[in-house]
């Protein structure tokens, strides 16, 4: 019966997520529509990169989200390890595949952008290599979460991985500054301000917010699904126990 009492807390999450989800999803949808409109119709081609610049409007938001999501995994992991809050590990477990998806998008769209502009699909420079490593770390996190019969052990192992791998996040960010890379330096987050013309900022920021909204929408859905299936399991266990 102790198992069922653990769900008393998440009931609060259920109420909150039920109330928030339609709003977050709705705003995300609007942001995507606006973002895509600006990205495809209401922004100019770049003076040198032409219309390939439109790939930036999905590539860069995905990159920002893949770093944000991994940081989320590390923080949630730490909270779970230190304070043992069950929602912490659950959010990490729910977030990891989303982050892996974003990272896959970064790598694939980057490749499609690199071929016409750089002349190659891939190079082993510091930026691209460290992002590929991030992708492997995500896959490792997903695997570890599911590798043990006791999900708590998997969650702890994944949390440790998230913390150990967290050093990769600043490495990725500063790779273009610390080493010679083919990938160019930062265009937005620099002391001198964005190196992007104002006509190209609306699609970039709209899509960035859309991706962020998407992350939270999907996160809420996945946690709700996880809570529901855990409840199913707990009820089954309780029914079995009662039947004996």
């Amino acid at each position: 019966m102790a198992n069922l009492h653990r769900f008393a807390n998440p009931a609060q999450f259920q109420r909150l997520s039920r109330a928030l989800l339609p709003w977050v999803a709705g705003i995300t949808a609007i942001l995507f529509v606006l973002g895509l409109y600006f990205a495809l119709f209401a922004s100019p081609p770049d003076y040198q990169q032409g219309d390939t610049v439109r790939i930036m409007y999905v590539h860069v938001p995905s990159a920002w989200m893949s770093l944000f999501c991994y940081t989320f995994l590390a923080v949630a992991g730490a909270v779970g390890l230190i304070w043992r809050h069950p929602l912490a590990f659950m959010s990490a477990r729910a977030a990891a595949p989303i982050g892996a998806g974003f990272t896959f998008i970064v790598l694939a769209t980057g490749s499609l952008w690199g071929k016409p502009m750089w002349g190659t699909w891939w190079v082993w420079d510091a930026r691209l290599t460290s992002v590929l490593i991030l992708f492997f770390l995500y896959l490792g996190h997903i695997a570890l979460s599911r590798a043990f019969d006791d999900p708590a052990r998997g969650a702890k192992a994944a949390a440790v991985l998230a913390l150990v791998g967290a050093v990769n996040v600043p490495i990725i960010k500063f790779s273009v500054d610390w080493w010679n890379t083919l990938h160019q330096p930062a265009s937005v987050s620099r002391l001198a301000g964005p190196a992007i013309d104002s006509s190209m900022l609306p699609p970039l920021f709209l899509m960035a917010f859309a991706f962020m909204g998407y992350f939270f929408t999907l996160l809420l859905i996945r946690i709700r699904a996880d809570l529901a299936s855990r409840k199913v399991q707990a009820l089954r266990v309780a029914a079995l126990a009662a039947a004996e």
């Binding site: 081609p45 032409g50 219309d51 390939t52 439109r54 790939i55 999905v58 590539h59 995905s62 595949p97 989303i98 998806g101 896959f104 998008i105 694939a108 769209t109 499609l112 952008w113 071929k115 016409p116 998407y214 929408t217 999907l218 859905i221």
Partner: peptide, 24 residues
């Protein structure tokens, strides 16, 4: 035509949409 880069731009955008929609 995307300025001659259609073979790169559209697959990138479509791939993104496919990944995001399937996860959802």
């Amino acid at each position: 035509g995307m300025g001659g880069y259609a073979a790169f731009v559209w697959p990138a955008l479509i791939l993104t949409a496919v990944v995001l929609v399937s996860m959802l």
